[in-house]
Write a protein that binds this DNA or RNA. Structure first.
Lengths: 227, 227
DNA sequence: GGCGTGCCTGGAACATCGTTCCAGACGTAG
DNA sequence: CTACGTCTGGAACGATGTTCCAGGCACGCC
């Protein structure tokens, strides 16, 4: 009988950190944030909850790893031949699209900035801010301003997709909110009522970019010869 | 014996929604987000968990009510005689200070925008954006840009105070992060290393306001005669 | 005065979660 | 063949949000 020594356990596959993280991502994508359970994860991997803890310290680390696994590739582009503005826009869009594809990432990014994924974003933004000619003393302010805006939108997108019931479409949800807005008290909420229509029609992505541009305009306008 | 008819139950006080909410705020302030438990809350009110559910539908509503109770008074000022910029700054500072005093509010605001507290902020910001002379088509973008920035900072403040161990001071925490930054790989994280010093010295409040000003500059610069 | 009715209480119980524990299977080195 | 360290997975623990329900209390009606 041939030696079966080289088989990697005769189980299907030997359960590794990578397999766990990718199963977690799949679970999060299909069942949402609340669906990531060590028991559900164990079932998906045909094992028990205890086995997972051998490869991962806990849920916090697992979520961080899952987030990094999704965001890292999304922001990996080169800014070689692009204006600083274009590079920042591209970077911001990378984050946006990652969240759009995996809504749970929004919550996670907002909760765990200063960790690998967002730290990478911060570094990339900072370099472009430098390239923009912002004086050194103002670079931190400019970069973290952009970061905070991005994180704010991240959280909002997460909220919007979480609030919407699983079945309903995103446009239905916006429609519902817009309708609620237009029924607010005309005295107390004059402005909100007024822009309810714009909320209904607006394009998330475009609006997001417009916000980025607003900040970029502010940054460049302030640090120019005669501003 | 005098009639004891008019006494409001001879228990201490008859347990009302207000009493529950204010106990929840007190609990959140002392023990943090994770400390708000229906059991702990019941003990504080010398009752059982079940009684609370008669006045409040669940934890979500309780958190929302607690947040509103803290934020509503914090943003209740009149913008009568102030420039739009000043009014927006004052409003933003109101939110900031509320979060500073009650860190759990940050998480909550970021999670539940489009609800009473943040809706009020949105309305107030919107009016000032109007007063700024922003054309109608761009008002929604400007107002939600500001909102998203505020919500981003809200989330970050919450993260910063949550991450820091209960005992450590905030400056210690910043110091630790700054040190970690300055020990990053010089090639991969040149910019981040560079601004580590600014992170250590920076004033949260001032930095926050600077971000607001950046966006305000962007808004006004864009919508001016020859922009 | 009795007495039912409905608001409100609070303790027990349930389902589920993150996490820990541990007996044992597996492959490898001696 | 045996001993050991790696890895498994099911059971069990403590805590949580929530539901259930038997009972207490004040008030309105006879």
């Amino acid at each position: 009988m041939a030696t079966r020594t080289r088989r990697p356990r005769q189980r299907q596959e030997p359960l590794s950190r990578e397999r766990i993280v990718s199963a977690a991502v799949a679970l999060l994508d299909t069942v949402g944030e609340g669906g990531l359970t060590f028991r559900a994860l164990a079932e998906r991997l045909t094992t028990g909850p205890g086995a997972i803890y051998w490869h991962v310290t806990g849920k916090t680390e697992l979520l961080a790893a899952a987030t990094d696994a999704v965001v890292a590739p999304a922001i990996a582009g080169d800014d070689a031949d692009a204006t600083p503005q274009e590079a920042i826009r591209a970077l911001a869009l990378g984050v946006f699209d990652a969240i759009d594809a995996h809504p749970w990432v929004g919550t996670q990014l907002a909760r765990a900035s200063w960790q690998p994924p967002m730290l990478r974003v911060f570094e990339r933004i900072g370099r472009q801010v430098q390239a923009l000619g912002v004086p050194e003393a103002a670079q931190f302010t400019a970069a973290s301003g952009l970061m905070n805006y991005i994180l704010g939108v991240a959280g909002q997108n997460a909220v919007n997709t979480r609030t919407a019931e699983p079945g309903t479409d995103r446009t239905e949800f916006l429609d519902a909110v817009a309708t609620a807005w237009s029924e607010l008290d005309p005295d107390q909420y004059a402005f909100t009522r007024n822009v309810a229509g714009q909320l209904r029609e607006h394009d998330d992505r475009a609006e997001y970019l417009a916000g980025i541009d607003l900040i970029l305009t502010g940054i460049t306008a302030r640090h120019r010869a005669s501003g």
